[in-house]
Each structure stands twice: as C-alpha cells, then as structure tokens.
Design a protein around this nucleic acid. Structure first.
Lengths: 344, 344
DNA sequence: GACCGGGGTGGAACCGGTTCCACTTTTGTA
DNA sequence: TACAAAAGTGGAACCGGTTCCACCCCGGTC
C-alpha cells in the first residue's frame, strides 16, 4: 500500500525538471532532447509511474470522458448500445461513464449532476423527456449532448441519432395491411416521447396509403417500465372486434408483450400475426421465430459517438445534426395472410 | 458557455473565506456559524455552484468511485449484473465506471490501468484469468478488489462472490441422472477458469454419487467468446453414442448452444433433455420453456458491492472473504425421463 | 481581573499535473 | 565569424478544492 509516484518523483529520479517529464508525457507540447526522453521513459517504466487523471483534469479543465445515460441496462437494446459505445469510445481513447435512469426523471437529474461534476466533455443519452432546463443548462456549460433513439423536441440545438421511426412503423404496418389484415394492434411508447409519436404517425400513414381508417382503440401507448405491454396485449385481445395482427413498437415492452402472448396461448401466426421492434437475440428462438424491425445498434452507437467526439473536438458545424439510420425489416415466421373467411 | 463558478466565487459573493464555504460543503469538517451557513447555501444556490469532482479528488487522494469490469455487456447476465451494481452503488452515493474486456487480457489490462489512473477505491470484476501481476499490483496500491462469478486461484487475498458452482452443477446433473439419463453432455467454461473447473467437479460428483462412470467425451469446455457452444452441440450430437441430455453450464454460450439446437431441429425434451445455466428473460419463451439454474444476480450484485464498500471504509477484517450464494434450480419443460427402450 | 477553553474564521500550503515564459544552448545561414 | 532562429530546459503560477493552523473573541471559572 505504498503511495504511487508523482511526476516530481520521476523528474528527480531522472535528473530533469517536471516540465520535461510533462512534455515527454504529452508529445507535441514542446521539444525534448531524444536522450532525455529515453531516460525519462525508462524511469517512468522503472517506477511504474502513471499520471493521475484527476490532476490532469483539474489543470486542463476537462476529461477525455463522456457520459452515457440510458434507461435500463437490463434491456438488451440498451445493453448492446452501451457495449458498442464503450467499445468504440475506447478505441478513441475516451472513457465512458455509464449511468441508468430507470426512466425516472429524478435519477436522470442526478446522473446529469454527476456528469457535470466530473466535467465530461459530452453526453450520449436516451432522455426520459423531462428535465428540459437541466439539459439546457448542461449545454450552456459547454457539454456536448447527443440524444440517441429518442429526443426532446422542446430542446433545440441537440444532435439526434435514431432510426427512421416513422418509416419503420409505416413499413411494418403496410406489411400487415398487405397481408390483408385490417385490424392491427399497435403497442408503442408513451406519446410524450418522440419515438412514441413517430411510430404512431407511421402506423397512421400506412393506413392512409391503403385508404383505411384508423381505430384509435387499437393504439396503445404504454410506459417503458412496468408490465404495460402485457396488459395492453390482454386488453387488445379482449376487444369485441379483436385485432388479427399486432405490432409491438415499444422496445422495452417487447418481452412483456410476448410473454403474455405465450402465457395465454395465442397461436402465432394463426391467431395473430406479430411484428416486434428490435432484434433481440432470442426473437428467433421463439416458436415461431418472430419477424422483427431490426435497429442497427452498431450504427446508432458509431454515429452518436462520432457526433459527440466531433463536437468535442470542435470539428463540426454548429448547426444541430439529425442522423436517421434505416432499420431493416426481417421477415421470419410470425406473420401470415389473413384467412379469407375467418370464423365469425 | 460561461464557465462554472468556483468555490472562491462563492466565497467572495457570500463575503466569507473559502474555508467557510468548504466547511459548509463538508459538514463535520469544522464549525460554521448558523447565519453564515445560511448565506453560503443561498449563494451556492443562486450561482448554481457545484464542486468539481477532480479538484476534490486531487486533494483528498481518492474518489467515491468503483470500477466494474465485466466481459461483455451484450450478455444479459453481465448486463443485469451491471444494472444492479450501478443501481445499488448510486444509493450509496458511489459512482461506477463500467468497463468491458471482451475476455481479452489486453483490454482487461487497459481497463485496470484506466481505473488506477482514476484512483478508484475498489473494483468489482469477472477476471479473464490473466494479468495476475496486474491485479496484485492494483491491490498493493490499496485498491480493493472483489471478484464476482469467477476468480483467479493464484491470487490470494481477493474477495469472491459467486454461486455455489460445484453444488449447482451437481444438482443439475443429478436431476438428469434421476430421470434415468446416463449419457449427459456438459458444455462448460474453459478449464482455465474457476467456474469451468467447479462445474465439471459437480458434474463428476453427481456421477460418483450414482456410481456411474464419466465419459470425458461428453465434457466440452469451450471459450466464452465465439460460437463454441453451437459447435459443441453439433459435435456432441454427432457422437456415435450421442447424449440424451445436455447441460449448458457456460453462461455466455447458452444462446449459441440453444440456437444450434433449434437450427438442427432437435426436439426438446423428446430427443434431448436440456438444462441451461442462467435464467435469461427469454428462456421461458422458447418451445418448450427451458429448465434453468437461476443465478441470483441481485444477490451477487449486493454482496459484491457490500464487500467492496466495506473494505473501502475499512470496516471489514483483513482476511479475504468468499461468499457463495445458492442458485435455484427452476424446472420447466425441457427435461423428461429417458424412454425405457429408446430406438436402438 | 486574569486566565482558560472553545467556537468561529481566514490565510496559506498542498494535492499532481500543465503551461507560460525567460533563459541557455545548439544549429543554420550569410 | 557573427548572429538570428530554433531547440531545449527549468522555475513558477495555476487549476479548484481540502485542511492545518494561527488567531480572535466570547463566555465561564477561580
């Protein structure tokens, strides 16, 4: 438990000044004679010296660190996103502080304070939708903010990386309509979120294209947390004129929804055609394998990191950027044409 | 982008010295007249002042931060563990830096360096098994290390939190033996890991209890990364005298293994009885639902955090602790008795 | 009335880096 | 050979907190 050597220890052991050691540590910060550089490097190695991040941070005013604020690591979508972001960031020499909000605005506010205290240069986040003034403050203090997956429309000047939500929902819906389905249930995120609204928009657009009117009863916007998906499944199937197809467009509620379908023994696709958002690893292990809208998580991670690092290095125009990546529709076996004359 | 106020700004705005502000910030560090405390708190609020973590860290020499080093966040087991640890830590006012190793010793070494640079007080990790001297160095520098799930036997004085690996594997095996199975495949982690060895030990113990000899061909220790699980499934089923039961005791390879089973159309449990380690959310959505050994992730998280925080606060005896928590066997529908006269 | 004790306060050193700047030495060129 | 430019170096201030310590002032005690 001996204490770690400091830059001054290195300097005196190498017979040079701290300035020289610092310049060896940070190439391009000034010239060092090759011979001394050698000596210093050797001493550093011998002593096992490592510069302390806090000291450097204090003096330069910021850290090569970004915050990643997601709702819930237990959700595979966020977990994979986090994995990719951490991984990509490392290859850029950037550390990531992962924080979870559990969709709770208070926890989100806490996380932001923490990140602020740590002087992170940027934040990648899936915002809960609240804390608008807090996000604004963060930006005012020079922290670069990139939202991923969802956004807060009230907030200007924020970069956004997401999938083409409207289009993805439209395609899924049109696929069902094309199979002859006319009553299509939609389970999506809260209308208070941008994704919730966009996906409903896509759903309606598809109906519009097919000149079919939309039954509002079939649209369920449920919270990300809790068991809203399962409950929505229950109540949709209890409808007098129950849907023959279901689109689960709420990533966090897919598991809950599918679990309920399995529990009540719905036969897929005979009783119900199903498309879910997000290609979790298990979606092809169910019986039958589920057709999915696959969010290209790698792309989301890469682009958001790109944006936040780009801004941190000031090599991006000031105007906020919105990057929408295409989501693939992966047909598997959970959708079938509507039987021409269903039992009625 | 105005710069954030410092403690000196607060001090002069409140008409007191920085010492007073600091004492207000850290109660118990000295007396402050109630009236001044009020003033200072008001000014802090007005200015939106927040102490910078780096400055404090530099001064006190350590941070209320721990590192969490796991193999792969995309694996639900680690993701949930991380989620719980982050969550629990926050309630103790402790930040968590999540790092992933992808089972790569180099990346692990990198992560440890980073954590060291940031002066974390403790580390919770699932070690790759390498970097022994690096772990030792970390400890020598006063960083408290707690391993979770697996350990490195060569390393003394490290706390460990894991499930009862030997016992869990033994119970799963005995369950199969009790159903009449005599050829039971085992897919487990590398024998270079403690979990790999323990689970093989349990498997053998069960056979011993039933006075049945073990066929080494049926034991496959495969790497955590890659597609070793699927390959092992393939080769086990290709055996002339193929197993009638399979235990997948390699958490990371469960998905790969089950995917292969589904691909080649093995009927479970008719063709093959199956038990897998780890109750991923999807294990009850497969057809049929899988019987699992459920690792109590919450307990693992709580205990490891408890240990690391306890050590950081110096309120634990010096001797290393090993905490083994019981894993539940959750029977579902993927095991059946061996048919008395199989096709032969 | 002298003395002691303690609450309350501010000055200043310190933590371990970075960076500016003044200074010396080397190098290159006329 | 002379002299400017460039390379190399070290001292010291600085980042923003914490903490030690000296000091003041007040009340209580003999």
């Amino acid at each position: 438990m001996k204490k770690a050597p400091t830059i001054r220890d290195v300097a005196s052991a190498a017979g040079v000044s701290v300035s020289v050691v610092s310049r060896v540590l940070n190439p391009d910060s000034g010239p060092v004679a090759p011979a001394k550089r050698e000596t210093v490097l050797r001493v550093i190695d011998e002593l096992g010296y490592r510069p302390r991040a806090a000291a450097r941070e204090l003096s330069v005013g910021h850290t090569p660190t970004i915050g990643l604020v997601v709702a819930d690591l237990a959700n595979p979508f966020f977990a994979q996103l986090a994995d990719r972001v951490v991984w990509e960031a490392r290859s850029h020499g950037v550390q990531v502080m992962v924080m979870t909000t559990q969709e709770d605005p208070h926890l989100e506010a806490d996380s932001l304070d923490t990140l602020l205290d740590r002087s992170v240069g940027g934040v990648i986040a899936t915002p809960t939708g609240a804390n608008i003034e807090k996000w604004a403050r963060l930006q005012a203090l020079g922290v670069n903010v990139v939202f991923v997956d969802r956004t807060i429309p009230e907030l200007e000047d924020v970069d956004l990386v997401s999938i083409e939500n409207v289009d993805s929902a439209r395609r899924a819906t049109e696929h069902m309509l094309g199979l002859g389905h006319r009553r299509i249930g939609l389970i999506t995120g809260p209308v208070s979120t941008s994704t919730g609204r966009s996906r409903i928009e896509g759903y309606k657009a598809a109906h519009n294209n097919f000149s079919i009117s939309v039954d509002p009863q079939l649209i369920r916007d449920v919270a990300f947390r809790g068991d809203g998906g399962g409950d929505a499944v229950g109540s949709l199937l209890a409808l007098p004129d129950r849907p023959t197809a279901l689109i689960v467009a709420n990533t966090a509620q897919v598991l809950s929804s599918v679990r309920r379908l399995v529990q009540i023994g719905v036969r897929i696709p005979d009783d119900l055609s199903v498309i879910v958002f997000d290609d979790n690893p298990w979606t092809e292990l169910t019986n039958p394998p589920l057709s999915v809208i696959r969010q290209p998580i790698d792309m989301l991670a890469v682009h958001s990191l790109e944006l936040v690092l780009g801004r941190m290095q000031g090599r991006l125009p000031a105007a906020p950027r919105t990057i929408e990546v295409k989501a693939d529709f992966v047909p598997r076996s959970s959708c079938s044409p509507l039987a021409l004359s269903p039992i009625s």
